[in-house]
Amino acid sequence: MTTSTGGPAPTPAPGHEPIRAVPLRHPWRNVIGAVLIIAIAAIVWDAAVNRQAYDWPAVGKYLFDRRISEAAFVTLQLTVYSMVGAIVLGIILAVMRLSPNPILKSIAWVYIWIFRGTPVYVQLVFWGLLSTIYPTLDIGLPFLPPIAQLPTDQALNTFWIAVIGLALNEAAYMSEIVRAGILSVDRGQEEAATALGMGWGLTMRRIIIPQAMRIIIPPTGNEVISMLKTTSLVTAVPFTLDLYTRSRDISAETFNPIPLLIVASLWYLFVTSILMVGQYFLERRFARGLDRVDLTKGARLPQGDAPSVDSIANARGESEERR
């Protein structure tokens, strides 16, 4: 953290002169900064004036095109629904993998093995063929006539197939993130809860997971942003109303792909920025009570179990920034 050097010096203790020193100069920073600004200005000028292929008027025309903004909203919906599904399923899988029950453990392991081990594009094609493989969805008991029967393509439109496909794939990654978060919580927490007579499930839900959230959120933010971009693969289902596929379809009509690529990129950036704001507030929420690791006031930790210097330094830094 930097502090201003120009402000009035705090009143010195009697007999002590405040330090007056010439601040360290960084001349090369200014030079490199100036060169960078000139280079960027040259590229922008060149792009604006010389490069006709960018077709800036077309960018302006399509940036706020109804079809594009609607497609951006569909992409956001795909992202949010599939991430919510992935997070819920990921938590369940992570808890299963860490449970003492060998059957739950194996199920989680096999799930992660399959869904992490095959490309998401291939999985999306598979889900798109669901209605070919299973033409009807039956509700009922095996070997008995079904109670209810629905044609698969009526029960699930391509939007929900895309959501399911993305969510099931992402859940495998999320479960590993959640597992890392759970493992990062001090073992003493589980012991304390157990000693109070709390069962394993209650301990996970009330004690371990809320603390693991702090570790889980930053990589999950990564996954959300990654998901936003992975939605451009749903054309494999085939689902065509997402941002990328929509902009490709428009450029297929206009024979002018470059401006629409720029339009799509700008919208992806815009949505990513919104998601980043959301992450900031989530992180603040789960830092509750943990914003200050106070080891100076009498809590002496035994060797070997002490939190890393980094984590303490981070906690310090965060609390100082907020004050």
Binding site: G188, A192, Q211, L290
Partner: peptide, 10 residues
């Protein structure tokens, strides 16, 4: 416990 093991989020 020796290290208190309070729930830090509560």
């Amino acid at each position: 416990f020796q290290r208190f093991n309070l729930f830090p989020h509560m």
